[in-house]
Computed example of a mutant assay.
Amino acid sequence: MIKKTFLGLLALSLFAVSCSSDDDSNASTTSNLTLNFQGLEALGSDYVYEGWIIVDGQPVSTGTFSSVTFPQTFPVNSVQLENATTFVLSIEPAVDPDPAPAATKLLAGNFSGNVASVNSDNIVVALGSSLSALGASTGKYILATPTDMDDTNEASGVWFLDNTNAPSVVAGLSLPTLADGWKYEGWVVFDGTPISTGTFTDAESADDNAVTSIFKGDSGNGPGYPGEDYLQNAPTGLTFPTDLKGRTVVISVEPYPDNSTAPFTLKPLAHVVPSDAMNHTVINMGDGPVETLSGSVTRN
């Protein structure tokens, strides 16, 4: 009996050692991936940032985050991290049923040794979009309110068009074509409050709220270019019609679907409407405050 008990305990002991050894050998070894980005802003509550490494042409998640305080470090499978060629940062739903990266890929860069220099320009190299040309964007606009019959409030509307050679009218914005997952949006900043003029992908066509805008007048949708008349239904604290002189006009790049009602970080064009601006006369925009985002990704 003693002999059988001893043999039984010995067998259990050997099994335990064997299982422990197998677990150790099969355990995934991880290495650190450190992200250090400049210029990122917090997203809306329903969205998060997600990092990805490209391994053998396939995306592998490195984890999600919502804080924009850097550096941040994530544990990643050592073999996959060593074999990664590219890093990509995307914007994802906080509750995401799709394991693949969303179309809203913001930063990308190829590894050189253990470091990848990433920025929004490099997306054209890594993923085939056109965000890299944002720095070459130019813009023109006029003050006018074509959606009502009142000619006394012309400084209450902004339209991104060029009527220099009137009656011929052309697009006022020269912008690169964005990749899937992104749209442009116009804004006017009223005493620190940005009010959208509408989202669009084509500067030579009306924007997405041409028909649905609650601010325009009752005489039509306006010209076939992005823009807005601020004539009625003013948000709380504002009065329409108004005078846009002294206000800031902005063009931003927005995730689509959008994560927030506020402007996104990327703003390639901006301009303060001059106090002596003339109605129906072309005004040139300048560079915006953020034309590109950048940072570094280090594996060790």
Rank of each mutant, 00 (worst) to 15 (best):
I214K: 08
A171C: 08
T177A: 14
N110W: 01
I91C: 09
T30W: 02
P289K: 02
L173Q: 09
T201A: 13
G139R: 13
T86Q: 08
E291M: 02
P99M: 00
A27T: 09
G217V: 03
G51W: 08
S252E: 05
N26D: 06
W159T: 10
V115W: 00
T298W: 04
L269S: 05
V290Y: 00
K4I: 01
M285P: 03
L178W: 05
F215A: 02
G128Q: 08
G44F: 01
T281R: 12
E41T: 14
V76K: 13
F87P: 13
G192L: 02
L9S: 08
N83F: 04
S129D: 15
V253A: 07
T104V: 12
L7K: 14
Q232W: 00
V17I: 09
L269V: 07
A16D: 12
A84E: 05
P194L: 00
S45K: 10
N114R: 11
V188Q: 03
V125W: 08
S25Q: 15
D276F: 07
T197M: 11
G8Y: 12
S67N: 13
D56Y: 03
P289S: 01
Y141S: 09
V170N: 12
I91H: 09
D287M: 00
N165P: 09
N259V: 06
G8V: 09
N284Q: 03
T236A: 14
A270T: 00
D121C: 09
E228S: 13
G139S: 12
T236F: 07
S90F: 02
A94D: 13
S67V: 10
F70H: 07
M1A: 06
N233S: 14
E254P: 06
T236I: 05
G63W: 03
T34C: 11
E82K: 15
N122C: 07
F215V: 01
V76Q: 12
T152R: 15
V189I: 09
I214L: 05
L81D: 03
S31C: 02
L43C: 10
V55H: 08
R299N: 02
V169W: 08
L178C: 09
S174P: 11
P263N: 01
S168Q: 14
T145I: 06
S45P: 10
A94H: 10
E204D: 15
L131M: 12
E154W: 07
V273W: 02
N165D: 13
S90V: 01
M278N: 09
T193S: 03
N32D: 05
L175I: 10
M1C: 04
A166M: 07
Y49Q: 10
L143W: 05
G181V: 11
T104H: 03
T261N: 04
Q80G: 10
S196W: 00
S129I: 11
D208R: 02
F37L: 06
L35S: 03
D208C: 01
A203T: 11
L244R: 03
S25E: 15
P93W: 04
N153W: 10
